[in-house]
Design a protein around this nucleic acid. Structure first.
Length: 856
RNA sequence: GCCCCCAUAGCCCAAUCGGCAGAGGCAGACGACUUAAAAUCGUUUCAGUCGGAGUUCGAAUCUCCGUGGGGGCACCA
């Protein structure tokens, strides 16, 4: 006998939840109610593809998973009950560093570790009971899956979308691998390991996502309204398109001009020097061309210092400007002025051309630099006068003086506002917008400049120097030439980890698999590429693989893709707002261009669930505020936890577990079950003989529920179900009693709607009510319109917007009659008093508002 | 610095079109059951919508200006 406190097993509901769970789990296991009919099967129902972001198999499920899968399941179950053929698959994103690091720590095979975790999560997931089609499970670490990653890579390679280049990359010194820009946090640390990211120059594989920058940006417009505006804004920011001009500056002693990118070609007359990125080839070349040995030496010192600095240092705002003179001069194409060329690390080598024209009067960064190195500042836009219209107004002397107190050279504040051009020769008097167009036109006519666009987005670096990922299907011949592995030799299978040193050391562990690396293509000896792919490649197309997960011949079956894709509703965390969602959008567009799919956006609608917090902050072991999902499930049951997730608030809001009550949810579920048990009538009872008020409430629920779900107002629907449950209880206890047909009608409505949130309780209720399983496959009922029209409504009588009286009236009352009633109301006439009525607004049948003013 | 979102009861949250501020839950209070407590059941208190201005017959809802909180981007030329 146990002395530990716990749920009383004799109580119905809360108690017995574990037996109920076991019972229905067995039934579902056998009957597979959620296996999806393939498109080929000829099922004629309309289709919906509802997808949850698949999990990474790190340990067991946690509270975050519990929320995401509960909410995604509400949507999947809803559409199923609306008569749709719903595809709701699940799989595992099972390649990646956490598994590998854990495997190293424990000295086991990453493969074993990963699949053991998957097995455990899978069992937890089954108990949690999302309505997944378990026949479509996929794991990205299966060769049958990653073979198609390699296929995709080769297709992109053919089109020049996968390429290798030598460049400065983000290096994670803890995980000892490179990272994509998207995987470096704003503070300069690694998204995964938290290590401070450093720059390293390496030859790596990239996917040319920048070629799709415009489409990735412009197509966001299509998603407006069906994706969270927050995610759309984040992607827009991330792509960061800017428009301006490329301008060619001749350089003394160099045949080729240097091109700079600027968004402010109108300030070209204000350029007083040029700056190049110190780590660019251009800087090295310019300095090498200087005949001053001291300059060359100072540059080398500076370059070394820059290269040693971390991302954190580089990103520090308000950092002192540093730089060195290159000894070279450029010529301003507009006015022929000689501009000294400096090298400074505030200019980035991989944005634009890695060189800028500096206009210190109108750019704060340039001004800071100019002041630090005593370079001239020339104002070319008069920002003292507001600009009206696009008319050219030439200042009297053409060179309007700038007030001393506004001179950026002395104030240290650059003038970035609107204004009219001065000190700019033929462009004097034009407004900024006007001048930009004119300067570009002029430069184009002279052949020394052109309109240009630039993006913050960089190409996607996909090489990783780690073991547990998809091998890059490229080999190199003796001269180091790239040779793609022929398609019929895929997959390039990952060699077993036995005998390999998986410890991060800066080069791929696969390099140690000598027999694997040394191979042959067409009888020629070649070496395999030893890097593996970023796991975001795996997840950028998995939603297509779910449509034909076991197809051995194709990545995905076009006929199934035509029927199911794109995903109708995607559900997942906002943490992937940029990373995964941007990559998946990119790959989809690539597949579209290749003719494999006929749509350009993979996810028609997106729902971001919030995070589950505890005491105001994200849960973590180190903070000591970790709530274990398994503990919650043991204490309250799956249904109570799922219901709590849906009821806590709008899905996109964070849930603070300290603010919600799984115990309250459990209590409610027990009450709902009890209502079902108390029903004392048979399924064929005639509803229309039932209690009218309860019937109206039931039908009101049927009328409102679909709209609530489709607007993701799950919490509101749960409240409505609770309301109906309370009302039913009252009728059982104090009304017509358990035999009232309306009680059965209401109880069935409760079971059917609750089925979205709490599958076990709903199934149990459905059985008690005398129906065979599964409740999840029964259609929702249509409201009876005659029960939705109220017999009377409360009309509000206002005077000057303040409620003075309420009257019960027929919903069909006319405006004139209602106004008559209002004027007859004692409360109304009293509050009008001796004031003059100036206006009467009548909104039959709900409202009359009488506006008055004092008698003058 | 630029951009986006949010603010309603002690707490989590509702409130079609601008039209009665409250659906639901938590917590609290009271009562029933109990020798008592827990659990359970019943009843019930509680805000005028962050501040200010405006539009309107009428504003939680629309506009503007603040305040507070959250998020994205940021030496990107």
């Amino acid at each position: 006998m146990s002395l530990t406190p716990g749920p009383d097993r004799d109580e119905p509901g809360v108690a017995g939840f574990s037996e109920v769970q076991d019972k229905w789990q067995r039934v579902w296991e056998e009957t597979k109610p959620f296996a999806t009919a393939t498109a080929a099967s000829g099922d004629s129902r309309p289709r919906k593809y509802i997808l949850d972001m698949f999990p990474y198999p790190s340990g067991d499920l946690h509270m975050g998973h519990a929320e995401a899968y509960a909410l995604g399941d509400v949507i999947a179950r809803y559409w199923r009950q609306q008569g749709f053929n719903v595809l709701h698959p699940i799989g595992w994103d099972s390649f990646g560093l956490p598994a590998e690091n854990a495997a190293i720590k424990r000295g086991v095979d990453p493969r074993e570790w990963t699949y053991a975790n998957i097995a455990q999560q899978r069992e937890s997931m089954r108990r949690y009971a999302p309505s997944f089609d378990w026949d479509r499970v996929l794991h990205t670490s299966d060769p049958e899956y990653y073979k198609w990653n390699q296929w995709l890579f080769l297709k992109m390679y053919e089109r020049g979308l996968a390429y290798r280049k030598d460049s400065w990359v983000n290096w994670d010194p803890v995980d000892q691998t490179v990272l994509a820009n998207e995987q470096v946090l704003p503070d300069g640390t690694s998204e995964r390991s938290g290590a401070i990211v450093v720059k390293k120059k390496l030859t790596q594989w990239y996917l040319r996502i920048t070629a799709y920058a415009d489409r990735l940006l412009d197509d966001l417009n299509q998603l407006e309204g069906s994706w969270p505006s927050k995610v759309i804004a984040m992607q827009r920011n991330w792509i960061g398109r800017s428009t301006g001009a490329d301008i060619d500056f001749a350089v003394e002693g160099r045949t080729e001009p240097v091109t700079v990118y600027t968004t402010r070609p109108d300030t070209l007359y204000g350029a007083t020097f040029m700056v190049v990125a110190p780590d660019s080839d251009l800087a090295a070349e310019l300095v090498a061309g200087s005949d001053d040995a001291e300059i060359r030496e100072r540059f080398q010192d500076y370059l070394q210092r820059v290269q040693k600095s971390t991302e954190i240092e580089r990103l520090t705002v308000d950092r002192e400007k540093t730089g060195v003179f290159t000894g070279r001069y450029a010529i301003n194409p507009l006015n022929g002025e000689r501009l000294p060329i400096w090298a400074a690390d505030y200019v980035l080598s991989d944005y634009g051309q890695g060189a800028i024209m500096a206009v210190p009067a109108h750019d704060q960064r340039d001004l800071d630099f100019a002041r630090a190195f005593d370079l001239p500042v020339r104002v070319v836009v008069d920002t003292t006068q507001p600009v009206t219209g696009a008319i050219r107004i030439i200042p009297e002397d053409g060179e309007l003086p700038v007030l001393d107190e506004m001179d950026p050279g002395t104030t240290g504040v650059a003038l970035s506002g609107e204004g009219r051009l001065i000190n700019s020769g033929q462009f004097n008097g034009f407004s900024k917008v006007n001048a930009i167009a004119r300067v570009i036109a002029h430069l184009e006519a002279q052949g020394v400049g052109r309109k240009a666009k630039n993006y913050r987005l960089r190409d996607w670096l996909i090489s990783r120097q780690r073991y547990w990922g998809t091998p890059i299907p490229i080999v190199y011949d003796e001269d180091g030439n790239e040779i793609p592995v022929p398609e019929d030799q895929l997959p390039v299978a990952l060699p077993p980890s036995e005998g390999l040193d998986l410890k991060p050391k800066g080069t791929s562990p696969l390099g140690g698999a000598t027999e694997w690396v040394q191979t042959e293509i067409d009888g020629k000896p070649v070496r395999r590429d030893t890097d593996t792919m970023d796991t975001f490649v795996d997840s950028s197309w998995y939603f297509l693989r779910f449509l034909s997960p076991n197809d051995p011949d194709k990545a995905f079956d076009p006929s199934e893709v035509d029927k199911w894709a794109p995903v109708d509703q995607y559900v997942g965390g906002v943490t992937h707002a940029i990373l995964h969602l941007l990559y998946a959008r990119f790959i989809t567009k690539v597949l579209f261009d290749m003719g494999y799919v006929n749509f350009t956006e993979p996810f028609t609608a997106l729902l971001n669930q919030g995070m589950v917090l505890m005491d105001g902050s994200a849960m973590s072991k180190s903070k000591g505020n970790l709530v274990r999902l398994s503990d919650q499930l043991d204490e309250f049951g799956v249904d109570a936890v799922r219901l709590t997730m849906a009821f806590a608030g709008p899905p996109e809001d964070d849930i603070d577990w300290a603010d919600v009550s799984p115990a309250g949810s459990a209590k409610f579920l027990a009450r709902a079950l009890r209502v079902a048990r108390d029903v004392d009538s048979s399924p064929d009872v005639v509803w229309k003989n039932g209690d009218d008020r309860l019937r109206r409430q039931t039908h009101r629920l049927w009328a409102d529920a679909p709209g609530l779900i489709e607007a993701f107002k799950f919490n509101v629907l749960v409240a409505r179900i609770m309301e109906l449950t309370n009302a039913t209880r009252k009728v059982i206890d104090s009304g017509a009693g358990p035999t009232d047909p309306a009680v059965r009608e209401a109880a069935e409505a409760i079971a059917l709607t609750l089925s979205l949130f709490t599958p076990y309780t709903a199934e149990e209720m459905w059985e008690i009510l005398g129906y065979p399983p599964s409740v999840a496959l029964y259609g929702w009922r249509k409201p009876d319109p005659t029960l939705l029209v109220d017999e009377s409504v409360t009309a509000i009588m206002q005077v000057d917007g303040k409620v003075r009286d309420r009257l019960e009236v027929s919903p069909k009352i006319g405006g004139e009659e209602l106004e008559k009633l209002a004027r007859a109301s004692v409360a109304v006439t009293r509050s009008i008093g001796d004031r003059e009525v100036v206006n009467v607004i009548v909104r039959a049948p709900r409202l009359v508002n009488i506006a008055t003013k004092p008698v003058s």
